[in-house]
Amino acid sequence: MTLSTPPASERARRYAADGVLRVDRLLDGSETDAIRAAFMEQVERDREVLGADDGLPDDDVLARFPRFMQPHRRPDLPAGALARRLMSDARVLDVVTTLIGPAYGAQSMFYFKPPSARGQAFHQDNYFLRAHPETCLAVWIAIDDCDAENGALAVVPGSHTKEVVCPEAADADESFTRGLVRPPEGTEPVQTVMRAGDALFFHGSTVHGSPPNTSASRFRRSLIFHYVPRSSVEVSRWYLPLVAPDGTEVTIAEAAGGGPCGDGWAGEAH
């Protein structure tokens, strides 16, 4: 199976069937160039202000290029201002609304994934967000051309019909995050090949992950957003306040449990 971009009229049906929707060229080249430049400037100038994954050993490349969590909460920084604007961009929200109805922004993330970086074991996002009674929706935007060699995302179509499950331990040599959810019986992972500006929209129960970056020189940078339906009554406290399309902040009840999307090993196992 390969993932292709369906006509706009087919997007909701494809998402309902597969739990994942591909939209090519959501952003153009000038936009991905600007995003790449802003986040690289930020990580080189001060990676701690937005960075997660504290405690990694100095010889781990992700200590130099940690994930940035919730950059949209720092609109005083150029990278944060870009994340804040794109979280409410009509091109993104139009697809989100088609798939889950009116929604609030819950999270922004930026992954650098330089050469030699570990991948991320298969997981389900709503294990962390705990959106209820519905689920979250991820928007994963490629900022570099990516494939299996430099660690492009792999998704498991149809896995969204299964419940969110408790992860088992991942392989610390392969994954920088701790949890592993195996693809459900009868489903198969699909390895994506994407161009900068292409996007994947996927359900909070869809199993997904990525292999290590084994390329010699290619980063695999990505900008990621999570949304929850406006009908959500609770979400993990890590995602509050939510962001309405007009930029105002919204608070709902805190769900029990959850946490930052993708718990890292930090210094524990690698």
Rank of each mutant, 00 (worst) to 15 (best):
P184G: 09
F110H: 08
T161C: 03
G186Q: 06
K162L: 05
H123K: 06
T161H: 13
R118S: 07
D125I: 10
H132Q: 13
V96Q: 05
V96W: 00
V96D: 04
C136M: 13
A121E: 02
F110L: 15
A142W: 06
L153Y: 02
A148W: 01
A106H: 07
N150P: 00
P102Q: 10
E163L: 14
T161M: 04
A154H: 15
A103D: 15
R130P: 12
A103I: 04
A154F: 15
Y104N: 09
R118G: 05
A169G: 06
P133I: 09
H160I: 07
A169K: 15
L180Y: 15
D125K: 08
A148F: 00
V164K: 12
V156Y: 06
Q120H: 10
M109H: 12
V156W: 04
Y104P: 12
C166M: 11
V155I: 10
D125P: 13
G186Y: 01
D145W: 14
V139Y: 14
S159D: 00
P133H: 07
D173P: 07
T135N: 06
A138Q: 12
P183G: 01
I143E: 00
A103C: 09
I143L: 14
E149G: 09
Y127L: 14
H160A: 02
C166W: 10
S175C: 08
E174Q: 15
A148L: 04
D145N: 13
F110C: 05
D147F: 00
E185Q: 13
